[in-house]
Design a protein around this nucleic acid. Structure first.
Lengths: 173, 173
DNA sequence: TTAAACTTTCAATAAAAATTGAAAGAATAT
DNA sequence: ATATTCTTTCAATTTTTATTGAAAGTTTAA
């Protein structure tokens, strides 16, 4: 297989994976394209390579910057902007994990603790109410467990990054 | 807050969470409804409580059974079918993890190993090719790491379930 | 065997999400 | 100040996905 074909397949696969995880196909494809491009790309490059409109390219590149996994690059003497993806996969994973925790785990945790304070009423038997709070409680503790696991991963990756960085700084150490 | 209102809010929240993770809102809502319902529900019950059509209820209940997190329950002397959700959240998490690994991790791993065998061609410089294989390699090892973590979680939960089960069987032990 | 009570399927439809492209907005150069 | 080059926005449109409901299928009872 040739490089271009391999890149094409990666972009397609990454897009499919993205849509299974609630990320729009195009956003994942823009990310994939930037991941496998050695240098930074302009909006035009992205439009051409993925065959999408200017507006679409702009929207998705900006969404990726919101996630912290794509950066704008300005070149001296160039008016237009270039974009490049974070290439360190550990950092990518960490940033995505952080963002999803904020966007999805936190809202559901809030709902869980609110609805746990269900009042006893004449319309529901105490057994029904208890079964409900027990269910919610177990989801809560699972969510806390998941949150803890995510934190651990984030910390581990931050340490890993830091130590790699330190090694680069002091190669003799 | 009253029980009905709390359940309504849970169903809504679970639906929102689902769609952020690539699960259709209705499928997540049917799951949520079954999670907070003490007994098993018939198709009619689901249709009525979520205000959805028969076909929709049927499709989503079946998808949930494919995931292994909802079971059909047959009552003696009753012709119609009842459905109930797995209530043990650890088991739910394990089953979802297993299924997603099969559906999403495996396909992308296959693509990664295929495209890694990119041939050197005159159109691409060796540096470009090497940068690409390096990128794919790091995604591969991250995917392997994630797969390993998932396996560990699945095994841990299976052990946890087994030990709980053993305790139930031999309460004196 | 026929009827009754339910489940499943699927083509048509509706709803939601993504995409376009043109216009408006910014930034820089002349 | 005006033109030029690029970016951003957003209403209209297209595409994708989900939903409906009626017909076909299945199972049990009489």
């Amino acid at each position: 297989m040739q490089l271009d074909e391999a890149k094409r397949r990666f972009i397609e696969g990454w897009g499919t994976l993205g849509s299974a995880w609630g990320v729009s196909r195009t956003m994942a494809q823009v990310h994939a394209l930037l991941l496998v491009s050695p240098g930074a790309l302009s909006a035009e490059d992205i439009m051409e390579q993925l065959q999408i409109s200017r507006g679409n390219a702009n929207m998705n590149v900006r969404a990726l910057m919101d996630w912290g996994i794509v950066r704008k690059e300005l070149r001296p003497g160039e008016r237009r902007e270039f974009f490049s993806a974070e290439k360190d996969i550990h950092r990518v994973a960490t940033l995505i994990l952080k963002e999803r925790r904020k966007r999805e785990l936190e809202p559901i945790m809030r709902v869980l603790s609110e609805i746990k304070q269900v009042e006893p009423t004449p319309t529901a038997t105490p057994e029904e109410t208890e079964a409900f709070t027990k269910m919610i409680g177990s989801i809560q503790s699972f969510a806390e467990f998941a949150d803890g696991a995510a934190s651990t991963l984030i910390k581990a990756d931050e340490n890993w990054f830091l130590s790699t960085f330190m090694k680069l700084m002091r190669p003799g150490q």
